[in-house]
Simulated scan of single mutants.
Amino acid sequence: MFVNGKAWTASDAFIAFELAGTFFSIAIGLGFFFQSHLRKNSLPALLFCLVALPQLSVSMELLGFYERFPGTGLLLPPFYIFLGPLTYAYFHQILGQEFLWKKSHLYHILPFGLAYAVLVPVYGQPHDFSHIHVWLDIVLVLIMLYVLVFLFLTLLDLWVLLKTSILPFPGIYRLTMLYVFVAIVDVGFLIWYQLEKSEVGMVLSFGLLTVLSVFIFWGMQLYPDYLEIMRKEAARGRYAKSRLTGIDSADIINRIRELMDMEHLYADEDLSLGRMAESLDIHPHQLSEILNNHLSLSFNNFINRHRITAACRLLTEEPNRPILSILGAVGFNSKSSFHSEFLKITGTTPTAYRKKAISPDV
Score class of each variant (00 low, 15 high):
6 K>N: 11
16 A>I: 11
16 A>T: 12
16 A>D: 10
17 F>M: 03
20 A>D: 06
20 A>G: 08
24 F>E: 07
27 A>V: 11
31 G>C: 10
33 F>Q: 01
34 F>M: 15
34 F>R: 09
34 F>L: 14
36 S>M: 04
40 K>E: 12
40 K>T: 09
45 A>I: 00
46 L>P: 00
46 L>H: 03
51 V>D: 05
55 Q>C: 06
56 L>H: 07
60 M>L: 15
60 M>N: 09
65 F>C: 04
66 Y>H: 12
75 L>P: 06
76 L>P: 03
77 P>A: 02
77 P>I: 03
82 F>M: 06
85 P>E: 07
85 P>S: 11
87 T>C: 01
88 Y>E: 00
89 A>K: 05
93 Q>R: 05
97 Q>C: 07
99 F>G: 00
100 L>A: 12
100 L>I: 10
101 W>Q: 07
107 Y>G: 10
114 L>Y: 12
114 L>K: 06
115 A>R: 02
116 Y>F: 15
117 A>C: 00
127 H>G: 00
128 D>N: 12
131 H>W: 08
136 L>V: 01
142 L>Q: 03
142 L>P: 01
143 I>K: 01
145 L>G: 02
149 V>P: 03
151 L>T: 02
155 L>Y: 13
160 V>R: 14
164 T>M: 10
166 I>W: 04
174 R>M: 12
177 M>L: 15
180 V>F: 14
181 F>H: 06
182 V>G: 10
185 V>W: 00
186 D>M: 14
189 F>Y: 14
193 Y>Q: 13
194 Q>F: 11
196 E>Q: 14
200 V>T: 14
202 M>E: 11
203 V>N: 03
209 L>S: 10
210 T>L: 08
211 V>H: 12
211 V>M: 11
213 S>R: 00
214 V>E: 04
215 F>S: 09
215 F>H: 08
217 F>K: 05
232 K>E: 14
232 K>A: 13
236 R>P: 01
236 R>A: 15
239 Y>F: 08
239 Y>D: 13
246 G>F: 12
250 A>S: 12
253 I>H: 01
254 N>D: 13
256 I>C: 07
259 L>M: 13
261 D>N: 04
261 D>P: 00
264 H>Q: 11
265 L>P: 02
267 A>S: 15
269 E>N: 13
270 D>S: 14
273 L>T: 09
279 S>H: 05
280 L>N: 12
280 L>F: 10
283 H>L: 12
284 P>W: 03
284 P>H: 08
285 H>P: 01
287 L>A: 05
287 L>D: 13
291 L>V: 04
291 L>N: 08
294 H>A: 01
296 S>D: 13
298 S>Q: 06
299 F>E: 06
299 F>I: 06
300 N>E: 12
302 F>W: 04
310 A>G: 09
312 C>W: 01
312 C>E: 11
320 N>D: 15
320 N>S: 15
324 L>Q: 11
326 I>C: 02
327 L>K: 08
327 L>C: 06
327 L>S: 02
328 G>D: 04
328 G>F: 04
329 A>R: 14
330 V>R: 04
333 N>P: 02
337 S>G: 07
339 H>S: 12
341 E>H: 15
342 F>P: 00
344 K>I: 02
347 G>E: 14
347 G>V: 09
348 T>E: 14
348 T>Q: 07
349 T>H: 11
352 A>L: 10
352 A>I: 11
353 Y>L: 03
354 R>W: 01
355 K>Y: 06
362 V>P: 02
362 V>M: 14
